[in-house]
């Protein structure tokens, strides 16, 4: 699976994340229209949920803002109790955006980046 071109979300976009109670959101801002198109077709809610499954995310909702080239992902129950009750160092999901940028895919299919 090493043949073909590998692209990282980091090559297409930037991101930032934050908390809303026990949920987190990640805003992904595409570098240009082409990148936005690729992200729309490849960076699905299911793919994002898989990336963060060990956090206990119960559902991921993806919202599109085409006028500003932004995808907004809401990760339900991602924060293990939220800012006050979370036992994690990242109580507010501040690292999730940076982590999402590590996702990589090959020319034709998303591929697990950590196997």
């Amino acid at each position: 699976m090493t043949h073909g071109k590998t692209i990282c979300v980091r090559d297409l976009a930037t991101a930032r994340s934050g908390d809303k109670g026990n949920h987190a959101n990640i805003g992904v801002f595409a570098n240009d229209e082409d990148s936005y198109g690729i992200l729309c077709s490849r960076l699905t809610a299911v793919r994002v949920q898989t990336h963060f499954q060990e956090l206990g995310v119960t559902r991921v909702e993806r919202y599109e803002l085409p006028k500003v080239l932004v995808l907004n992902f809401v990760l339900y129950d991602a924060l293990a109790g939220g800012a006050s009750r979370s036992l994690r160092i990242d109580t507010q999901g501040k690292l999730l955006g940076t982590s999402l940028l590590d996702l990589t895919f090959h020319a034709n299919a998303w591929e697990e980046n950590d196997q």
């Binding site: 930037t14 991101a15 930032r16 934050g18 908390d19 809303k20 959101n25 805003g27 801002f29 803002l65 500003v68 080239l69 932004v70 907004n72």
Partner: peptide, 8 residues
């Protein structure tokens, strides 16, 4: 743009 969708 990133801040527009921050924590929404």
């Amino acid at each position: 743009a990133e801040q527009l969708v921050y924590e929404i």
